[in-house]
Structures are given as structure tokens and as C-alpha cells.
Design a protein around this nucleic acid. Structure first.
Ligand SMILES: [Zn+2]
Ligand SMILES: [Zn+2]
Length: 741
DNA sequence: AGCACGCCGACT
DNA sequence: GTCGGCGTGCTC
């Protein structure tokens, strides 16, 4: 029998003997526990071994994971595909199919104690006890009153904590018996949701829904994925809810992926208001136990809808009819850290193909890859060009900050933005100010020698934080006091440059002392619930201006907001990354979409030093098509995605010479191994040092990812024995990277 | 990830 | 001559 051991870093199958106790109980896809080098590991039974390895003493499978049935075959296939496509080991991909809680020695479940009354003539006993032991009598009378059975927590709540003593006595006397019941850990136990009737659809929504319906009933071979391109506020979520209702009527299940940051209580409420308890939620804010219980509900078929972040694409459903990806352009769908570095959109497409489901992607700013597939006829394009109730999209003004400097305005706010703020605030309306940098100053530099103060562990400038009065590294968390003299030349002419959200907040407060300002960024939302608290204060208009980073751009719906200001749009434009323009366009469009969602029209002011940049101009016109036409040409000319695929290899380690040498060796292995695509590099990565480790990188380019991935794997396999990277350096592989820093 | 094995420098 | 560091390979 072959068992795939979930030991990271190994892609081998291992053979085990099936103990008599498991004979006949093993089906492929079953999770098992096996001894492995002195330890117990979780493995996946993939099937009988064709021929047992020679000269090895086989061990026996220790047992099954309790209460976890075999993974359905399409999901095992999906894991295999993910491992191949994203160049990870099979066990690493399998890890996505099993919540961590399920691999524990003992799965912890939430159990509650309940008591049952065990007395024939309660009345007699109660009256007998009344004088001698009034609390005893009270307890027994209570038990009789509630029908002979009650949960311990309820008894304590109703009769007071001091009833614990009498309960113990009653148990000893045999008047009560105790039992334990498993209870689902329900993350929404405290919330009660009113069912909400579906609103009337706009004609555009009706049309879009009709297209989705057509694809849903089409035979799988003719089924086309649907790309919903809907402007901000056009009612995409309602469309998803309707589509889900359709598949549910067809007796199939639906998965709806939502970016982690948008998976707010409000979003979940919308699903529960429509579908009640038929919804399971999977996201990282759940405790391991809650996550496991939600996972079990999905697996057992107790729900037909899953709403979740990236990893929910692996939800243990059978019979999936629909996979929706909301805000499909979002980068958070790309896994970065533990391999496989998969993109949920790609995995969803493959899962839909494997299971004959319909894939629906939605965005106001589709990823270039997705819109390209729509243009080439692979996806069916559905457009929602108007906001609900025909509310206009807010006009966007680009303000040239060079002009401001020339006019002698050295403030971070342009005259136009100040004027707009004046008007908005005096009309008692709300504003959002967006800047994609936190902290007070983004770097500190010496005026004598020009040196910027860097993190000791990373090749990154330190940011000054006013609140903590120190310099901090946003990559590794290192902090240092603000130096009085330059660390490299000793000069005291130290200059603070570049503004972050803290600075914006402070300047704003100085300009408008009576205006209520709140700041939302990683620094103010570290505490659990802080995020929701800030948004609530803003929603209740206890705050006039919300200053924030990325996290305020996503799906927030505040009707009172009539002004959105982008303090500096250039920050994401100048990154050494081929997606810089796309990211900027998305950011500006999304944040602009927060304005004018209520009855009063909104407007947007975007400050920039590059007002002629095509991405900004297109965003200002709300013209996705123009942006796309421009950007796709650039991508084609330079052979970037979607015309080519990339594989990003990063070699890192503490010894720079060893890192450089390894990077060179990796290049050799690929070149000599006959890798067919382009090999760029090695070169020091743009982020040359991170957390004390030097970083070198190579970029591989070619038209066919799966072929490239297979070739890379073959090259390393061929080199095995001849050369292997030492353990002091590590190699990370990112297929179709979202950025190549 | 943990453990054994082996090579090389430092010290009894 | 031996002890122990660490870099490397293997675990059915
Ligand atoms: Zn750092
Ligand atoms: Zn200096």
C-alpha cells in the first residue's frame, strides 16, 4: 500500500503494510497516521503499491484519522494539479485539503455537559428536601419544570453559580445523571440575522443573471466561465447571491471567494440574510476549532454554500456547481508564504473544469489576464456599466503636485484638495483620504552624505512613527530610536522626508482642529475588533474624515462620503515591477469608487507628480477599456503576462557569497538541463536583503507555464547527485508571481 | 522536521 | 588519538 507522507520537502511515496484491523477499510483518499522515522505523521493513502521497495523493512499504518472520510477524487486531483502547476511537493498541496485541527492526535471538540433527572416521584422528593436542603429541592423542581433535561450552563445561569454544590450532591445520590454532548463551535452563535427579501434587479443585473443562467444550464463541454465587469456600486454582490440561489435550486453547491479584507461581518450577514444557516464561512479570523467545525459541516453536506477567503477554493464539497470569485483582481488570492504559491483564481478555474462547475469572476477592475481571456473569447464578458439607481460615478480630478510646488505650496495637500475638504466638511459630509504608506515619514536621510537610514536586517529605508517616536522597518519589525546624528558621517543635518498616514492625520488635524479624524492602517488595527470599531464610528458619522491605507479601498459602502482624496498616487506607480501601472489603476479606481454611493454626488481628487501617466488618466475617466488597451500593448511588447508566464526563483541566505554562488548554480542547472524558456538573471533582487538574509533572484519566462514548471522540475531532478543547494541557503519558487521584488 | 552519520578542527 | 561541531542525507 502506498502512503504519501505529509512530510514537507519530500515528494516520494512511501509504502506501508495494512494492519489486519484496517483490512478492507482503506479507500484511496483516506487520511492515515503512520510511523515515520521515529515520529507519527499524517499521510494520504493513494492506492496499493505496484511493487514494494526492496531491502526496506515495511512498517504498518498506525490508524485512520478519526471522523475524517476519504477526500473525494477530484480534490486529490486538484491537489496534484496545484503541486505540478505551482512547483510544490504533493504533500505541501495536500495540506490545503485538511484543516490543521484535523491532524492533531486527538481532535478537540467543544462538548457541553447536560443533566437528566432520574427520579420517579419528583414532587415527593422535593417536598421531603424542602426544609432540610432547600437548594437541592430547588434544583430538582427546576429540572422537572424544564422537562427533565438541561444543559449545565443553563442551570447555572438560571439558579446561580452556587447551584454547583447541590448538582454534585444530586449526581452522587443518583437523582441526576450527567452526559456530554458535542456542540458545534458556531462563530455566529450570538448574531441573529433577519431574513432579507431580495431586492429588485436592475435591467443590467437581470441581463447578467440571464447570461449566468445560460452558462449554468449549458452542457459542461460548452460552458464558458463568466467575467462580470461591473463598475463600483453596480450591485455585483446581489448578482452573486442570485446565481447562488440558482445553483442551489439545481441541487448543487456553491463556493464564493471573497478577499480576506472584505470578508467582514456585514458581508457574511448579507449571505446569511438570504440563505440562513445554509452558509459556512472559512477564513483566518476563525479559531482553529471553529474552522474545523465549519469544514466538517461542508464535508458532511450540511450546507450548500461556502463563503471564504483564498483557501476556501479547496472547500471539501462534492457536487460543486458554481465557483464565484469576487474582486478577482485582488492580489490576496495569491498565496505567498508556505508553498504552493497558488492563485485561487487559477485553482478555481481548474476545479470548475474538473467538476463541471461554472466559474464566475467579478471585478470593477479585472486583472489584465482575465480581461484578456474575455477579449479572446475564452470567458464570457458580462458588463454592469451603471451604478444602482443610476447614481453617477464621481468625477475625478488629477492634481499636478509639481504645479503646487511651483506655486509655493509645500504642504502635502494641494489647494484643490483643501478647497474640496472645506466644502465637504462645511456641508457636514464625510471624506476619505487615502495614502498607501503608513507611519509619519517614509524615510530619514542625511543632508550631508545623502545616506538614508536603513534597517540593519533589510535593505529597506526605515519609517518614522510619530506615535511610538521611533524608526520601524515594515518588513521585519525592527525598531530603532531616531538618531540625532547621521550613523554614517556624524552630521546632525538629518532630514525627514516622505509622508505616511500618520503625517496626513496630523496635518489634517492642524488644518481643521475641530474636525474628527480617524486613521485606519495596520498600526491602528492590530487589536482584534479595532478594524470594525473604526468603520462603525465612521458609519455612525462620529468621524468626519477617515485617513487610511489599502484597507480602506476595499468594498466599503458609506453613503455619507462625498469626497475621496488620494494624497499621492505615485507610490505604487514607481515600484520596479511590471504590474505597477495595473496596481495603481486598480487602487485609484477602487478608492474612487468609495465616493458618492449615497444620495449626494461624490468627487475624487488624485494628487500626483505624474498627471500624464496613462494609468492615472484612464482611472480619472473611469475608463477601464482605455487602460486595458494601453497596458496590454505594453505587456505584449515586453512579453509580459498574459502573453508570457513567469517563474520567480529567489535564493536567500545569510552568507551573501554563498547565495550568489547558489544562484549561479541554479542558472547552470537550468541552462544545462535544457530549460526551454528565457532565463533572466541571476541578479540581486530589488529587495536585496530581508530579515538578515541576502536575496538573489532569477526570472524564467515562457509561453506555457505547465511546460515550464515541468522543465524546471526535470532540470533539478537531473542535477540531483551532481549538485544540490546547501542547507544554509534556501530556494523559493513562485510560479506566476504577483510581484517580483 | 528530527535523527544518524561522517568529516575536520581543537584539545587532553 | 579523541571529542564534538555542523553539513548532508534519509525517513517505507
Ligand atoms: Zn527590517
Ligand atoms: Zn551622513
Amino acid at each position: 500500500m502506498a502512503v504519501d507522507v505529509t512530510a514537507e520537502g519530500t515528494d516520494k511515496l512511501f509504502t506501508y503494510l495494512v494492519p489486519r484491523s484496517l483490512a478492507g477499510r482503506l479507500t484511496p483518499g483516506q487520511w492515515v497516521r503512520v510511523p515515520f522515522g521515529g515520529r507519527r505523521l499524517v499521510g494520504l493513502y493513494v492506492g496499493p503499491a505496484e511493487r514494494p521497495p526492496e531491502g526496506v523493512a515495511l512498517k504498518e499504518i498506525a490508524g485512520l484519522l478519526p471522523d475524517i472520510p476519504p477526500i473525494p477524487a477530484p480534490l486529490v486531483q486538484l491537489a496534484r494539479w496545484t503541486a505540478d502547476r505551482y512547483l510544490s511537493t504533493f504533500p505541501a498541496a495536500l495540506r490545503l485539503l485538511l484543516p490543521t485541527e484535523a491532524r492533531r492526535q486527538e481532535v478537540r471538540t467543544l462538548t457541553i455537559t447536560n443533566y437528566r433527572l432520574n427520579v420517579d416521584d419528583v414532587e415527593a422528593l422535593v417536598s421531603e428536601l424542602r426544609r432540610r436542603a432547600p437548594r437541592q429541592a430547588e434544583l430538582l423542581a427546576y429540572m422537572a419544570r424544564v422537562g427533565g433535561e438541561a444543559e449545565r450552563a443553563q442551570v447555572l445561569a438560571d439558579l446561580g453559580e452556587s447551584i454547583a454544590g447541590p448538582i454534585r450532591v444530586a449526581l452522587e445520590k443518583g437523582w441526576l445523571t450527567a452526559g456530554r454532548v458535542a456542540r458545534r463551535r458556531d462563530p455566529f452563535a450570538d448574531e441573529h440575522v433577519e431574513p432579507a427579501p431580495p431586492p429588485v434587479l436592475t435591467p443590467e443585473q437581470e441581463q447578467a443573471l440571464a447570461s449566468i443562467r445560460q452558462e449554468l444550464i449549458a452542457p459542461p463541454a460548452f460552458r464558458q466561465p463568466v467575467l462580470v465587469h461591473g463598475v463600483t456600486g453596480s450591485g455585483k454582490t446581489e448578482l452573486y447571491l442570485r446565481a447562488i440561489a440558482l445553483v442551489r435550486e439545481m441541487g448543487k453547491n456553491a463556493i464564493c471567494l471573497v478577499p480576506e479584507i472584505s470578508l467582514t461581518p456585514q458581508m457574511i450577514q448579507r449571505f446569511r440574510a438570504r440563505f440562513g444557516g445554509d452558509v459556512a464561512v472559512l477564513h483566518s479570523a476563525l479559531s482553529a476549532g471553529e474552522r474545523f467545525d465549519e469544514w466538517q459541516r461542508i464535508r458532511r453536506g450540511e450546507v450548500s454554500i461556502v463563503v471564504g477567503a483564498r483557501s476556501a477554493v479547496f472547500a471539501p464539497f462534492e457536487n460543486v456547481g458554481l465557483i464565484i470569485i469576487d474582486e478577482e483582481h485582488e492580489q490576496s488570492y495569491k498565496q505567498e508564504a508556505p508553498p504552493p504559491a497558488y492563485h485561487a483564481r487559477e485553482v478555481a478555474a481548474e476545479r470548475a473544469r474538473l467538476e463541471g462547475a461554472l466559474l464566475v469572476l467579478g471585478s470593477a477592475t479585472p486583472a489584465l489576464e482575465s480581461f484578456h481571456l474575455a477579449q479572446t473569447g475564452v470567458y464570457r464578458l458580462v458588463s454592469l456599466g451603471h451604478r444602482i439607481d443610476n447614481r453617477p460615478l464621481p468625477p475625478v480630478t488629477l492634481v499636478d503636485m509639481r504645479e503646487e510646488l511651483r506655486a509655493g505650496n509645500r504642504s502635502i495637500f494641494s489647494r484643490a484638495l483643501v478647497e474640496a475638504l472645506d466644502q465637504t466638511l462645511s456641508a457636514r459630509e464625510q471624506a476619505i483620504l487615502f495614502l498607501n504608506r503608513r507611519g509619519y515619514n517614509t524615510f530619514i536621510m542625511c543632508r550631508s552624505c545623502g545616506e538614508a537610514i536603513q534597517c540593519v536586517h533589510c535593505a529597506v529605508a526605515l519609517t518614522y512613527h510619530l506615535g511610538d517616536d521611533h524608526l520601524a522597518c515594515h518588513y521585519c519589525g525592527y525598531t530603532a530610536p531616531v538618531p540625532l546624528v547621521c550613523p554614517s558621517c556624524g552630521s546632525d543635518k538629518i532630514r525627514h522626508l516622505g509622508a505616511g498616514t500618520e503625517r496626513v492625520e496630523q496635518e489634517l488635524q492642524r488644518l481643521y482642529p475641530h474636525v474628527r479624524v480617524a486613521r485606519m492602517d495596520v498600526d491602528t488595527t492590530r487589536r482584534k475588533g479595532a478594524h470594525a470599531a473604526i468603520l462603525k464610528r465612521f458609519a455612525d458619522h462620529e468621524v468626519d474624515v477617515l485617513v487610511g491605507t489599502q484597507m480602506i479601498t476595499k468594498g466599503l459602502d458609506f453613503p455619507g462620503v462625498t469626497l475621496v482624496g488620494v494624497v499621492l498616487a505615485d507610490t505604487s506607480l514607481n515600484l520596479p515591477d511590471f504590474r505597477a501601472a495595473e496596481r495603481t489603476f486598480q487602487l485609484v479606481t477602487q478608492v474612487a469608487g468609495r465616493a458618492g454611493r449615497g444620495d449626494r454626488p461624490g468627487r475624487v481628487i488624485v494628487q500626483t507628480y505624474q498627471p500624464d501617466h496613462a494609468a492615472l488618466q484612464a482611472a480619472a475617466e473611469h475608463d477601464y477599456h482605455r487602460f486595458f488597451a494601453e497596458e496590454i500593448r505594453f505587456r505584449q511588447e515586453l512579453d509580459y503576462p498574459p502573453f508570457a508566464h513567469m517563474i520567480h526563483l529567489v535564493i536567500s541566505g545569510e552568507d551573501e557569497a554563498a547565495v550568489a554562488a547558489t544562484a549561479q548554480n541554479v542558472h547552470r542547472v537550468l541552462a544545462e538541463g535544457g530549460f526551454g524558456g528565457q532565463i533572466l538573471g541571476p541578479a540581486p533582487a530589488p529587495l536585496a536583503k530581508l530579515r538578515g538574509k541576502y536575496r538573489y533572484h532569477l526570472v524564467l519566462k515562457g509561453p506555457d507555464v505547465r511546460a515550464m514548471a515541468a522543465e524546471v522540475k526535470a532540470c533539478f531532478a537531473a542535477a540531483r547527485g551532481k549538485w544540490r543547494a546547501s542547507r544554509s541557503v534556501s530556494l523559493s519558487v513562485d510560479v506566476d508571481p504577483v510581484s517580483i521584488l
